[in-house]
Amino acid sequence: MKQLLAKDPTNIVITGVGGQGNVMASRVLAGMLVDKGFYVTIGETFGMSQRGGSVMSHLRVSQKSAWSPQIPLGQADIIVALEPSEALRVLSRWGNPDVAVLSNNRVVYPIGVITGDYDYPDEDKIKNIFAKLTAKSWMIDATSVAMEMGNPVLSNIVMIGALAKTALLPIDRHAFEKEINKNVAADKRNANLAAFDAGAKMV
C-alpha cells in the first residue's frame, strides 16, 4: 500500500555546488520514491554549470502523473541544500511560506567572495532568514560528519539521512538500503549506510 504524499505533486529542490554530489543525491532520493510507486520527474542542470557553479535538481513526486522537469517559481515544498548560500538562492526563487528547508552549514565560497567583491552572509543571518521565511528549517553540519567518516563527498548521503528523519517524505532507512544495494558498488554500501544513519541523528 502506497504511503500518501502531503501534497501532489511534492516539489523538491536539491541544490549545491558542482562536485558536492548533488546529482547522486537526487537520483538516490528519486530511486527510493519510484520504488514506492510514485511518478518522479527529475530536472537537472549540469555540464558546464558543474564547474564551480551552482547546481540544482528539481524533483516532482506525484501519485498520478509525470510533471514538468522545472518547478514553477514559488512552488518548492522541500529544499535540500548542500551549501547554505545555495539554499538562499533557491529559496529566493522557489520559496513560499510553507516551504521546508534542510541545509548543510558548510560554506563553499564563490570566487566573487574570495576576491572580496561580494560578502557572504554569516550563519546567523541565514538562520534568521530561514526562521522568518520558511515553515520548517534545519541547518546541520553534514560535511564535518562526512569528513570524520573519511570522505567529505558523503555529506550528500548525510543530508538524505537527515531528510528521511524529518518525515517530510515517505522514505526510510529500509528504502535507502534497497536503493544503494541496486546502484552502489558493494564496497561502498557500508559507508553510505553509516552516513545515512549519521544524518538521521542530526535532526
Binding site: 558546464m48 564547474r51 570566487i111 566573487g112 560578502d119 543571518k125 521565511l133
Partner: peptide, 26 residues
C-alpha cells in the same frame, strides 16, 4: 501569481544578499 506580496518582497531582499556564484576552473 500566488505568493503574498509581503512574502515576495522579503524574497527579493534575500536575493540581494546572496553572492553570485560564477563558473570557474575546478
Amino acid at each position: 501569481k500566488t505568493l503574498p506580496a509581503s512574502y515576495a518582497q522579503e524574497l527579493r531582499k534575500v536575493a540581494a544578499v546572496i553572492p553570485p556564484r560564477d563558473q570557474t576552473f575546478c
